[in-house]
């Protein structure tokens, strides 16, 4: 239960906070779309910069707009857990796409040398 009183001071603080975050997000959006003009990069560089920008924006949205910063520990814990699980799925799929048959080759190289 939210038993704390929501005072005029809280109100002013939150308005300013949301305003600041909004300005920051707008700035980052500008950077997102202008990045290729300023720092022309190959695909890897572009993708990296873009995903970093998106992650910063994502962090701001989750932490402030979705007020995870002030949420209960249960909610925080489950957010980390879910992102971790999703990350693991990406890593495993990445291994499958990336590694091909390197271990098999290794075994075959060993057996061939005998």
């Amino acid at each position: 239960m939210d038993t704390k009183e929501f005072t005029e001071k809280d109100f002013q603080e939150q308005i300013i906070m949301y305003g600041k975050i909004l300005a920051l997000l707008l700035f980052l959006t500008g950077v997102t779309f202008l990045q290729p003009l300023f720092i022309s990069q190959g695909l890897e560089g572009t993708l990296f910069l873009q995903l970093v920008l998106a992650s910063i924006k994502g962090f701001l949205i989750v932490a402030y707009y979705m007020h995870l910063k002030t949420a209960s520990d249960v909610i925080k814990g489950t957010v980390y857990f879910t992102v971790f699980i999703l990350g693991v799925l990406f890593v495993i799929m990445g291994i499958d796409s990336n590694m091909d048959d390197s271990v098999l080759d290794m075994f075959q190289a060993v057996t061939a040398s005998h």
Binding site: V88, I92, D96, M99, D100, D101, S102
Partner: peptide, 19 residues
């Protein structure tokens, strides 16, 4: 959560992932 690949051992998956 992390063992689904054993259904795909004969479907065509990298050897590393299989192990």
């Amino acid at each position: 959560y992390l063992v689904w690949g054993h259904h795909l051992f004969s479907s065509g998956m990298s050897e590393t992932a299989k192990i």
